[in-house]
């Protein structure tokens, strides 16, 4: 079952965490949105790898397909469409930057405090349950499909309706008058 030793998994976590953080910082600080989008791609792929390390194989692959494929292509298309060198971003940051830094620092500090203060885990969950239904090992995608289509069918249909509405909305907004 376990392909990686615990040591290797730990090493990979820190590697991909570094990729995620570096990509995120690049998104926020780089002036050119094209470079920002490529940093965002690095973050998406790093997050997908972290999903794989947590036995979320299906979510990881969906992350690569939807974010690395669909959303990234959308961003790149729009960046090319708006013809960047006609836009000189004089000031990169709004005047509220110091206030925003304070707010973000406080929020992250609060989150970290909550994480570090949370009680130690009494009983670790059974990670084999992430790829099994009724005790039978059938793999993560199949087990996820069981939970999705059996327990959350209404939410699934609502999501499809939401995507239809979003698609129509995007077409209407992007229409040339």
């Amino acid at each position: 079952m376990e392909l990686l030793s615990a040591h290797g998994a730990t090493l990979l976590f820190y590697l991909f965490a570094a990729v995620v953080i570096a990509g995120a910082i690049g998104v926020v600080t780089l002036r050119n949105p094209m470079y920002g989008a490529l940093c965002l791609l690095a973050t998406f792929l790093g997050v997908a790898a972290l999903f794989l390390l947590r036995h979320a194989e299906f979510v990881g692959v969906v992350q690569i397909f939807v974010y690395g494929g669909g959303v990234m292509v959308l961003f790149l298309f729009v960046i090319m469409l708006v013809n960047l060198h006609r836009l000189r971003e004089v000031r990169m940051f709004a005047g509220t930057a110091p206030l925003a830094a304070v707010v973000a620092t406080l929020l992250v500090g609060m989150l970290l405090w909550a994480v570090l203060a949370r009680p130690a885990l009494v009983r670790a969950g059974d990670t084999a349950a992430l790829g099994a239904i009724g005790g039978e090992q059938i793999g993560n995608p199949q087990a996820l499909a069981w939970v999705l289509f059996r327990d959350h069918l209404v939410a699934f249909e609502a999501a499809s309706l939401f995507l239809l509405v979003a698609m129509i909305g995007a077409v209407v907004l992007g229409r040339r008058r």
Partner: peptide, 28 residues
């Protein structure tokens, strides 16, 4: 992963779907 419960992963998939719709409308 901690709880050995797949519901979290299901909702991650929903979040990804919502994020895709949000990106499409936002870019529109």
């Amino acid at each position: 992963h901690e709880r050995g419960d797949l519901t979290g992963q299901v909702f991650a998939v929903f979040t990804i779907a919502v994020a895709a719709g949000e990106a499409a409308v936002g870019l529109g």
